[in-house]
Structures are given as C-alpha cells and as structure tokens.
C-alpha cells in the first residue's frame, strides 16, 4: 500500500504542502515493462483485474492510469519482464 508513497518528504514550506508532497505518488508509472525481455505471451493480460494491459501482436502496453498496482502481472510473468515502478531500484527503467 505504501509502496507508492516512498518519496521522502520535502522540507516543509507549510504543513499542507508537506502533506501533499508526502502523499503524492512517486510517479504515474506503476508497472515497468522491459520490452526487450517480454516474450508477448499474454499471461499478464489474463491476470490483470482492471484489464489495463494490452498485447498488440508483438508489443505490450499498460494503461498506467487504470493500474491498481496489484502486482499480479509482475508475479505471473515467467521471464521477469515486468517490475513494480521504484525508479531508483529499477533494472529496466530505461525501457519504460
């Protein structure tokens, strides 16, 4: 749950701003796709509850706005082509 609120609070200008800052998502991107690792098997599409992953014949996309960050696709992926977004730790950030 708190995974997406990781950004360290900025020096407080005002309590309201500080709170807003702390609660803001790190990034709108919740799941990263490594296109060069993906084998286009569609398993992630099948397990995605909000149905926001799309597999064109050979290209995977995620509608990040609808993503609930449930991690099911990441866990299912047989080749680790998907990863939860945590930019500093990402191995695949370049291929977003």
């Amino acid at each position: 749950m708190f995974r997406f609120f990781r950004r360290p609070p900025a020096p407080a200008l005002s309590p309201v701003l500080a709170a807003t800052e702390a609660l803001a998502p790190v990034s709108a991107v919740k799941v990263l796709i490594a296109q060069d690792v993906c084998h286009h098997c569609g398993g992630c599409v099948a397990v995605c509850p909000p149905d926001v992953i799309f597999l064109d014949a050979m290209h995977l996309t995620i509608d990040q706005d609808g993503c609930t960050a449930c991690e099911r696709c990441v866990k299912m992926c047989p080749v680790h082509a998907l990863e939860m977004a945590a930019p500093k730790e990402s191995r695949h950030a370049r291929s977003v």
Binding site: H39, C41, G42, G43, C44, A46, V47, M76, P78, V79
Partner: peptide, 8 residues
Amino acid sequence: NVVVGGIP
C-alpha cells in the same frame, strides 16, 4: 527455442 506463457 524459448517459449513462455500462462495457462488457466
């Protein structure tokens, strides 16, 4: 050859 996939 490499094959990957998900199966219900």
